[in-house]
Computed example of a mutant assay.
Amino acid sequence: MLLLDGALGTELEKRGVDVSGGLWSGRALVEVPDKVRQVHADYVASGVDILLTATYQLCDDNLRQQGLDPGTVYARAIELCRDAAKSGSRGSRVQIAGSIGPYGAFLANGEEYTGNYGTVTMGTLQKFHRGRLDALEKSPYVDLLAFETVPSFLEIKAIVGLLSHGTKQWYLSLSVTATSLADGTSFDDVVDWLDAHPDPKLVAIGANCCGAGVSVEVLKRLDSKLAKTANLQGVGLVIYPNSGEVYDGEKKVWTGKKSEFLVAAHEWLRIPRVKIVGGCCRTGPRDIGELRELIDSKSS
């Protein structure tokens, strides 16, 4: 089992970094790269096996709109992960995952949680993903590709089409409700399609940025479905939900208890197919350190 890091954007906010605007945490890559490096380093100190690059919210278009060169920014994100990986006792064993957020994140209107992309076409989605994907795919320092918070069935198809000529392993982390993809597509339909279009480089499927309680139900449903497939028997599960707190959009505050996160984690570890775990919004190095301790206690 591999341990991912936790939140980057909300962790930077906690440390006084302004991540507002279309680039979100990617803004910090340009303005305060040392802050990004320090968050990565703190996760390494917490015992992670995988660091995610600060590229979730980035794409060629929104970087060029800010007068930035995409290739330079992507390379900086990778370099900051490399620097942090060297800072801990785990050293070269820390892998780097190239973070690839969905088209909905680029829209910056919450569509990564609905998948309501309107009349967007397959071609538009593939054009959106291609530049960042190519940069991360070609980097010798990126160990795997992480497609995160994907809410749309059409976008899944677009991603798989782009990956047909790639060489890196990848995982698919979905934006979900307890029973379906965010756009309403059933988990059965998603897995059936992936089973009919198998890619041997796909190492895991799962969810992120969901409720901690929801995460358990999602894993159980996906695990049951994967067990019945013809071509996905070797595919694992990935899960990294939010802290257990809930965001109040009107008051713009987080409420609720973090305790739900570790309670859910105990349930994840009961499922043998679960291979990659971590945290999303509002989780930090302390939460990931506690998850490290839990994983180690279960494996000892």
Rank of each mutant, 00 (worst) to 15 (best):
L174A: 10
I159L: 13
Y171D: 00
D189N: 15
L145Q: 05
C209T: 05
L181N: 01
P200C: 11
L194N: 00
T149S: 13
T185K: 11
F153W: 07
L181P: 02
D189C: 11
T177C: 09
S175N: 08
H165T: 13
T177Y: 07
A182V: 05
D195R: 04
K157A: 01
W170C: 04
G213T: 12
Y141G: 05
A204C: 09
F187N: 00
L202C: 11
T167W: 09
S139M: 09
G206T: 06
V150S: 05
A182F: 05
D188C: 14
S186P: 06
I156A: 05
G213D: 12
L162V: 12
S173G: 09
G206S: 10
A212V: 07
V160K: 09
S175R: 05
P151M: 07
P198W: 06
D188P: 04
L162K: 08
D195I: 07
A146P: 04
T177N: 13
V176I: 13
T185L: 13
A196S: 15
A146E: 00
F187I: 02
V190R: 02
A204H: 03
G211H: 06
V142P: 02
H165M: 11
Y171K: 08
K168W: 12
I156E: 00
I159Q: 03
G213M: 13
P198E: 10
D183C: 11
A207G: 13
T149H: 08
S139E: 11
A182N: 04
S152N: 15
I159G: 02
A178H: 14
V190F: 05
V191D: 00
C210T: 11
P200Y: 13
G184D: 07
L163R: 04
S186Y: 04
P200W: 12
D199H: 04
F153N: 00
T185E: 13
T177K: 11
I205Y: 05
D195E: 12
I156V: 15
G166T: 15
D199K: 01
E148G: 04
A135M: 13
Y171F: 15
G184H: 03
E155Y: 08
S175P: 04
P140F: 14
S139K: 08
G206A: 09
A196G: 14
T167P: 00
P140Q: 10
S173M: 02
